[in-house]
Nucleic acid binder design. Structure first.
Length: 405
DNA sequence: ATAGGGTTAG
């Protein structure tokens, strides 16, 4: 720049600092920040905000707050953009009370709030599971005649769905559309999932139709929600049909979508089809993960195919996929059911040695089997272990592990 | 001229 005869000014420096921040090159950003002051350029609200926001996003809240104080001491006035960066950073760290304080301080300083800071704050309250406070902020925004946009509606809808209050989204969703704000695939997918999870299949399926009608393309996640929802309603044939149509619109099913369907097929007694899909996934060169293996293992165990389950477990180990609590629970229960109590006992020791906490279904299946075999000593030992771990020794429940994928 | 907000799946 010297060669060109042009002197960098505050905007030049701010632009570079912001670019460094966004590239994660904090050392360079700080170097420029020091350089500019050395040559007598005073950082402005843009410079500070770039640095504050970057520190917030890196979780360095202490540095961000320090910079904000420094900014005020340097006589640079706080504005809504800087406050939004701080509010968002604090919310991200779960420090919602402090975020609220920043917001209130801002109002006190007569800085006008806007859509963006309201969204950041609403998001923070939702994340902190304070939906009522989130709704208060939403109302305050409306009271100030600030129109919510897609991000704000999306956040509120997501929050309500999160709290199992999908019914309360109906009015908001209509209102949003009436304002001419187009929903996107995420909002539709979120709503569909919430409706399915509350057993409201009609509403969920209506949304699939509506999405098509308004020309919003589903994504792989949308399909996953749809397939999972249909399977859990026992509509496995429809789920398979939808699965097959994924490629028709140019998408490729991923491991998660395969797993949803495999799990659904297992739970709807279509083991053959489940195996077929699992192999199809392997043939496509996809690597099944923990959940994918566990779904098929669980299905096999519940259908008495112990050998196939053990083969899958072996393949899992060979490909470096660790068993998790769900997989252990399923295997131990299945082995007990198939009279392989020693193998089950070994797995229990293994999971405990890995620091996992077996639940009463795991213990219960072993204890019950030991009693049935007349091995009272082992049964009592395990019951003691259960009590030590703070589990109720409820071995009569005949509980079947309900594997949630 | 340069800074800030949300979200979906097994």
């Amino acid at each position: 720049m010297k060669e060109s005869g042009l002197k960098p000014n505050i905007v030049t420096y701010s632009t570079f600092i912001d670019a460094f921040c966004k590239e994660g090159m904090m050392q360079e950003a700080i170097k420029f920040f020091m350089d500019m002051r050395r040559i007598g350029l005073l950082p402005n609200e843009f410079t500070y905000t770039s640095l504050i926001d970057a520190n917030c996003k890196l979780g360095n809240l202490a540095d961000a707050i320090k910079l904000a104080k420094e900014m005020l001491q340097a006589g640079v006035e706080l504005n809504v953009v800087t406050c939004t960066a701080l509010v968002d950073g604090l919310c991200e760290e779960g420090r919602i009370e402090e975020a609220g304080e920043v917001f209130r301080a801002m109002l006190k300083a007569e800085i006008a709030p806007n859509q963006q800071i309201f969204t950041a704050l609403v998001h923070g309250y939702i994340k902190a599971r304070k939906m009522e406070k989130a709704m208060d902020i939403w109302k305050e925004m409306k009271g100030r005649n600030i129109e919510p946009d897609l991000l704000m509606y999306g956040t509120i809808i997501w929050g309500l769905c999160n709290q199992g209050k999908v019914d309360e989204t109906v009015v908001l969703f209509s209102e949003m559309k009436a304002c001419g704000i187009e929903a996107n695939h995420v909002v539709y997918t979120t709503l569909m999932d919430a409706y399915f999870k509350e057993g409201k299949a009609t509403q969920a399926l209506n949304l699939v139709q509506e999405m098509q009608d308004v020309g919003i393309s589903p994504t792989v996640v949308t399909y996953c929600v749809l397939i999972d929802g249909l399977c859990k309603l026992g509509l496995v044939k429809e789920a398979v049909n939808h699965f097959r149509s994924i490629t028709d619109i140019g998408l490729q099913p991923n491991v998660v979508v395969y797993t949803s369907l495999i799990d659904g097929l297992c739970k709807n007694n279509c083991m053959e089809k489940a195996r077929e899909l699992f192999d199809e996934m392997l043939n496509k060169g996809m690597l099944p993960d923990k959940t994918a293996y566990t779904s098929l293992i669980d299905g096999n165990l519940k259908h008495g195919n112990i050998q196939e389950a053990l083969d899958l477990q072996k393949r899992m180990a060979e490909t470096g996929v660790d068993l998790d609590v769900v997989a252990y629970t399923s295997l131990i229960w299945g082995l007990c059911k198939c009279n392989q109590v020693q193998a089950a006992r070994n797995l229990l020791s293994e999971m405990v040695s890995k620091g996992m906490l077996p639940d009463k279904v795991v213990y219960g299946s072993l204890v019950r089997r030991y009693y049935e075999l007349g091995n009272v000593d082992e049964a009592l030992e395990l019951q003691n272990e259960m009590v030590e771990k703070g589990l109720v020794s409820d071995i009569n429940s005949h509980a079947v592990p309900n594997i949630q994928t």
